[in-house]
């Protein structure tokens, strides 16, 4: 596939400007690349390498450490069934088996229509709503097999498009402010005395920058189907008297 498109290239440059060293922006930029193509292509990683000043192999070598990055196309929806201890105790393996039957693929597999990739996942931190599933890392808790089937149906029909973007999209909210605090990072003479400290790069923008555009600000970040925000800490759990 492709290199970063102009919009994403601009986004990558914004990300680089947020860190004292370009390389720190590597993982955030790889998320942008994965949002663009749905996975990390060789061409895309080569482009990212140019941006952060690394060799392509260093980019791949870093990216391959992290479970969220894919090097081959995956389905539009990455369905991750948590089978770790809290979910296992609530029947996660039965749910996973059901998911395999519904989708017709084993963990790691993608449906023939390219819609779904199934994963056997580690703890997704929704253990108060076990067993839980994420779709492109958006949460759906307390699922039984019929609810799983309903979820799949809702995804297929596009009823959850507002809540679950296509695979690769991490954050639909973009940072709106360049770094503004400026030179509180200490004087150069302080750092010269420290052999261990790496000098910040000279191209780090330290002065006031223009505010960045505000894509995603229209988003309503409440959720209909995800249960994390409301059920995990339920007021009645905390308040009812003994």
């Amino acid at each position: 596939m492709a290199r970063l498109n102009p919009d994403n290239l601009a986004h990558a440059e914004e990300l680089i400007a947020l860190y004292p060293h370009r390389r720190s922006a590597l993982i955030p930029i790889l998320h942008v690349l994965q949002e663009q193509d749905g996975y990390l292509s060789e061409d895309g990683m080569a482009h990212v390498a140019e941006l952060v000043g690394l060799e392509p192999v260093e980019v791949r070598g870093t990216a391959s450490f992290y479970d969220m990055f894919h090097f081959e196309p995956v389905g539009r929806y990455l369905v991750a069934v948590c089978t770790n201890i809290a979910c296992m105790l609530q029947g996660a393996y039965r749910l996973l088996e059901h998911a395999e039957e519904t989708l017709g693929v084993a963990p790691g597999g993608t449906t023939a229509d390219g819609m779904f990739t199934l994963e056997d996942a580690e703890c997704l931190a929704l253990c108060g709503n076990a067993p839980c599933v994420t779709v492109n890392w958006r949460f759906f808790g307390d699922l039984d097999p019929p609810e799983f089937d309903k979820l799949v149906e809702d995804l297929r029909s596009g009823r959850l498009d507002g809540e679950v973007p296509a695979h690769g999209t991490l954050s639909r909210v973009r940072r709106r402010h360049a770094l503004t605090a400026g030179g509180s990072a200490g004087s150069a003479s302080d750092q010269a005395a420290l052999p261990n400290a790496i000098q910040p790069e000279s191209d780090t923008p330290e002065s006031q920058g223009p505010d960045l555009p505000a894509p995603g600000t229209h988003l309503d970040l409440s959720t209909r189907r995800s249960t994390t925000a409301t059920a995990v800490v339920d007021a009645k759990h905390l308040e009812s008297p003994k």
Partner: peptide, 29 residues
């Protein structure tokens, strides 16, 4: 006396990342 703060959020929490980034935009404003 920190020069900069980095809030490292687990990648598998996109809703948390979105809400935190939206909140940070508001906090700057």
């Amino acid at each position: 006396g920190a020069a900069q703060v980095f809030i490292f959020v687990r990648g598998e929490f996109p809703l948390a990342i979105e809400r935190l980034q939206a909140a940070l935009n508001e906090a700057y404003d």
